[in-house]
Deep mutational scan, measured.
Amino acid sequence: TFYNFIMGFQNDNTPFGILAEHVSEDKAFPRLEERHQVIRAYVMSNYTDHQLIETTNRAISLYMANL
């Protein structure tokens, strides 16, 4: 899942690491979701930090390219 992918960046001092920290603390994050459209919609609806949203979009693109 995307959640498992992004958790691989925990403790990294990178934008993906920052995203992983936010996702791990977000109890409502769709952890079992595999459809990138649902993940993107969730982030757009629940996150207000523009940098975090952009990082999510980049992470989703990388995740999709590696499926």
Score class of each variant (00 low, 15 high):
19 L>M: 05
17 G>D: 03
4 N>E: 14
26 D>M: 04
21 E>S: 14
7 M>C: 06
1 T>A: 07
49 D>S: 08
38 V>H: 07
21 E>R: 15
59 A>Q: 02
16 F>P: 03
58 R>F: 10
57 N>H: 12
44 M>E: 13
21 E>F: 13
58 R>D: 12
26 D>S: 02
41 A>P: 00
58 R>V: 13
43 V>I: 12
42 Y>R: 00
25 E>M: 15
67 L>D: 08
49 D>E: 09
47 Y>L: 04
17 G>N: 04
22 H>K: 13
3 Y>F: 10
18 I>C: 08
64 M>T: 09
14 T>K: 03
1 T>G: 10
22 H>F: 14
3 Y>N: 00
58 R>C: 09
57 N>R: 09
44 M>C: 08
62 L>Q: 08
15 P>C: 10
54 E>N: 08
2 F>N: 00
56 T>C: 13
1 T>I: 05
11 N>A: 07
33 E>G: 02
22 H>W: 11
43 V>F: 07
64 M>K: 09
57 N>C: 09
50 H>D: 13
8 G>F: 08
54 E>M: 11
17 G>S: 08
48 T>P: 08
66 N>Y: 15
51 Q>I: 13
49 D>M: 06
45 S>E: 14
52 L>I: 10
16 F>H: 01
53 I>T: 05
61 S>R: 12
7 M>Y: 03
48 T>F: 10
45 S>I: 09
57 N>Q: 12
63 Y>H: 09
64 M>Q: 10
54 E>Y: 07
12 D>F: 10
59 A>W: 04
26 D>P: 03
4 N>T: 12
49 D>F: 08
5 F>P: 00
40 R>V: 12
46 N>I: 06
51 Q>Y: 12
33 E>C: 06
10 Q>D: 05
58 R>I: 13
13 N>Y: 07
48 T>Q: 11
43 V>A: 07
53 I>W: 10
19 L>W: 02
11 N>F: 12
30 P>E: 01
47 Y>C: 06
51 Q>W: 13
54 E>G: 06
35 R>T: 07
27 K>E: 12
23 V>K: 03
65 A>L: 13
39 I>H: 01
4 N>S: 13
42 Y>V: 04
16 F>K: 01
33 E>N: 04
37 Q>R: 07
59 A>M: 08
53 I>N: 04
6 I>E: 02
24 S>N: 12
